[in-house]
């Protein structure tokens, strides 16, 4: 019995890691499309969202099947429960990457220079959070997961700054509303991506040691 469950878990894990890589790549491409004004890359991200949605459902069905058929316990149970939760966080990250890509397309169409700010740092930070949360999951690295949780504050702070800058800029140039709102949406999406990466990191900690670390901050 357990031999079959272990084989199924290995298969699920492999599939899941591919899914993680896909989502991570999406976020990276969405951000790059903004930086590099690359409409084609943005369109790729938008189109790939269907694949992510399909994988999310497949993984969920797989987890439910394993729960029903094998009644896993202890680490096997924690693993599957964490997969289920991380699965939906990844799907949300995928959706946010699409939001960024859509804004990117609109920015290219508007053909205006970013008038207010450079958010290279914010892009880098949220990408790193996604990467580290996934690495923590694959390597079962509690320290790395904790580092992701700590990084969330910085992103929140960066987003607040963007919000303030957009507000100030609007006072000076009210007609730049549309381009500014695109950037504000991107900033908001990056901040939300950081939140989902934090959720993933929290689930990784639960998977490793059974402790629920949510809502402790």
């Amino acid at each position: 019995m357990s031999k079959y469950l272990q084989a199924e878990l290995i298969r699920l894990k492999k599939r899941f890691y591919e899914y993680c890589a896909l989502v991570e790549e999406d976020v990276r491409n969405a951000v790059r499309s903004v930086y590099e004004n690359d409409k084609e890359l943005a369109m790729q991200v938008i189109e790939k969202d269907n694949d992510i949605d399909r994988l999310e459902i497949e993984i969920e069905e797989e987890c439910l099947k394993l729960l029903a058929l094998y009644q896993p316990v202890a680490i096997d149970l924690r693993f599957i429960i964490s997969m289920l939760k991380i699965n939906s966080d990844l799907e949300r990250i995928g959706d946010l990457a699409v939001n960024i890509a859509e804004r990117s397309v609109r920015i290219i169409e508007l053909d205006q220079k970013n008038p207010v700010f450079d958010f290279t740092l914010m892009c880098e930070r949220s990408l790193l959070m996604v990467k580290n949360s996934i690495d923590a999951l694959i390597e079962l690295d509690e320290k790395k997961a904790e580092a992701v949780m700590e990084a969330d504050e910085e992103i929140d702070e960066l987003h607040k700054n963007v919000f303030k800058k957009v507000g100030d800029a609007l006072k000076d140039k009210p007609n730049s509303f549309e381009i500014l709102s695109q950037y504000l949406t991107i900033s908001r999406a990056l901040e939300r991506i950081g939140d989902h990466a934090t959720n993933i990191a929290e689930d990784v900690v639960y998977m490793i040691n059974g402790t629920i670390v949510r809502h402790q901050g």
Partner: peptide, 18 residues
């Protein structure tokens, strides 16, 4: 506790069928 997060490694190995 035993079936979600046992304290002993051997317990975990046994209940997960290893």
């Amino acid at each position: 506790k035993i079936f979600t997060n046992p304290d002993q490694k051997r317990t975990e190995e046994y209940i997960t069928g290893q």
